[in-house]
Simulated scan of single mutants.
Amino acid sequence: MIKKAVIPAAGLGTRFLPATKAQPKEMLPIIDTPTIQYVVQEAVDSGIEDILIITGKGKRAIEDHFDRNFELEERLQEKEEAMYWEMRKLSEMANIYFIRQKEIIGLGDAIYYARQHTGNEPFAVLLGDTIMDSVIPVTQQLSDIYAQYHSSVIAVETVPADKVNRYGIVGGKSISDSILQLDQLIEKPSIESAPSNLAIAGRYILTPEIFKAIEETPKGKNNELQLTDAMLNLLKTENIYSHTIEGKRYDIGNKLDFLKTTVEFALRRKEFADPFYQFLQEIVASHQANSDKN
């Protein structure tokens, strides 16, 4: 069973400026819960015991979020007991460790920082700006496949064929309805050359051999060390599989998807789902009326 996870969260978040000038993009809340808390919860729900979060300059808020705040807890214990226990739970979710990526030069470089933490064990990777909504946690789905094949596994999702040039795309031999044995990993291929419409979805189980593959991988575009390139190197010496996820991926890395995710999650919250839905209807009706006038 996979017991360790790595969460890369060192990116600058430039697409969310100015909001991310002084706070990590991973701390942007979906209503009242920071994005990275959903990611950590998925790891915990998948049986992960140790989590290493790769941070960078200006990311101290992530560490503070998963640490205890005794003054706040004392005040909550007196007035809001339910919230007190929720805050206590944050610091007890798992054994969470932090290390800084000194220079932001790609996902492959970020993962390389985990080599001492993970040692000679397979480990999960969960991107810190991607939320998964599924009955069985996506990381657990990958862990189950690793237990079957004992090789690296990549989560993928089906995307429109005319948008494959926006993603890392995989290709390979079908093993089952949801599993491919890979022979291709291409970062943002042209629409004509894409081997499939299965896009890498921000969750991985990696064997420790990935670190040697990273060492042997030269930097690519923008002088960055890409994980996709390192996995291509890994493919020369061991099998890699993909699993089409059962669930929905929410990419919080861009503003429009962030807004869509917030709306969807808000409609699931019992305390304000109905009034919020009514508000949305009113907004849509008003927008439509203004469009008709114009």
Rank of each mutant, 00 (worst) to 15 (best):
residue 13 G to Y: 01
residue 13 G to H: 06
residue 24 P to V: 13
residue 25 K to P: 07
residue 25 K to Y: 03
residue 25 K to V: 09
residue 31 I to V: 13
residue 38 Y to W: 00
residue 45 D to W: 10
residue 50 D to T: 07
residue 54 I to N: 01
residue 55 T to A: 05
residue 56 G to F: 00
residue 60 R to E: 00
residue 60 R to Q: 01
residue 62 I to P: 11
residue 67 D to E: 08
residue 67 D to N: 09
residue 70 F to P: 06
residue 76 L to P: 13
residue 77 Q to A: 12
residue 79 K to L: 12
residue 85 W to Q: 04
residue 86 E to N: 01
residue 88 R to P: 00
residue 91 S to R: 01
residue 93 M to D: 07
residue 100 R to N: 14
residue 101 Q to A: 14
residue 104 I to W: 01
residue 104 I to Y: 00
residue 105 I to D: 15
residue 113 Y to F: 00
residue 114 A to N: 08
residue 116 Q to A: 09
residue 119 G to V: 11
residue 120 N to V: 14
residue 122 P to V: 13
residue 124 A to H: 07
residue 125 V to L: 11
residue 128 G to M: 07
residue 129 D to P: 04
residue 132 M to I: 15
residue 136 I to R: 03
residue 137 P to T: 10
residue 137 P to W: 15
residue 140 Q to R: 03
residue 144 D to V: 06
residue 148 Q to S: 12
residue 156 V to K: 07
residue 167 Y to E: 03
residue 173 K to W: 01
residue 175 I to E: 03
residue 184 Q to R: 05
residue 188 K to Q: 07
residue 197 N to V: 06
residue 201 A to C: 06
residue 207 T to C: 10
residue 214 I to Y: 01
residue 217 T to R: 08
residue 223 N to L: 12
residue 236 K to E: 15
residue 237 T to S: 09
residue 240 I to D: 10
residue 240 I to P: 07
residue 246 E to H: 06
residue 248 K to I: 10
residue 249 R to A: 13
residue 252 I to Y: 01
residue 253 G to E: 11
residue 254 N to C: 05
residue 255 K to R: 14
residue 265 F to S: 04
residue 268 R to G: 01
residue 271 E to P: 00
residue 272 F to T: 04
residue 274 D to L: 00
residue 275 P to K: 06
residue 279 F to I: 02
residue 280 L to P: 07
residue 281 Q to P: 06
residue 285 A to L: 00
residue 286 S to H: 13
residue 291 S to G: 11
residue 292 D to G: 07
residue 294 N to L: 15
